[in-house]
Amino acid sequence: MNFSEYVVSRWDTLSLAAGEHALVVGVAIGVSTAVGVGIGLLAHDLPKTRGISLAISAAILTVPSLALLTLLIPITGLGWGSTLVALTAYAFLPIIRNTVAGLRGVDASMVEAGRGMGMSRTRVLLKVRLPLAWPLILTGVRVATQMLIGIAAIAAYVDGPGLGTQIFEGLSRLGSVNALNATLAGTLGIVVIAVLFDLFFFAVRQLTIPRGLRVRS
């Protein structure tokens, strides 16, 4: 059985796994974006909180994914739970870091002009800093997404959803008939998902970055 015959014969399994892979990454990114941008908004101007949240999110990222998934089993069990928790936690660093950098990187004169016109601190944050930081925040989310698509493959180890199952199957039956096909299908599937997510973020970028920031000076 060659590769295309393999894909056709296992289409149901493969498409379901791919869908779940995208879903688990999408949900994790959604949660970590909401929480991470929130933390960034609260912490960008508080040196202590900022330092702590960045340190924690960086520490999480240094834990090997296999280890983190294993450690989560007693708490969130096998499958979706542990996968979602781990993926969400891994996405925090790029998102929080870019949010903080974006908000703090806004030109001081903009903030002074806003405050000088009688905008409250919160209004300056939401109406000036956030829109100006948005391109950088979006980049952080995009980087996090690419990272999670790869890490999600490991989740198969704790019986998680996604294309990782194909890869692990191939690995465990190395030398048998469809071992290579399974691994290849899983890997290519992940590449396709990554490309689709990137296209999605390109569209989001075009739609949400204010026109005034895109015009040439």
Binding site: S109, E112, M117, G118, P131, P210, G212, L213
Partner: peptide, 17 residues
């Protein structure tokens, strides 16, 4: 501040508006 005009050297116009 809403009743005092304020202009600065760097102008500080908001580029997204």
């Amino acid at each position: 501040r809403r009743h005092i005009g304020y202009a600065i050297q760097q102008v500080g116009l908001f580029p997204h508006l």
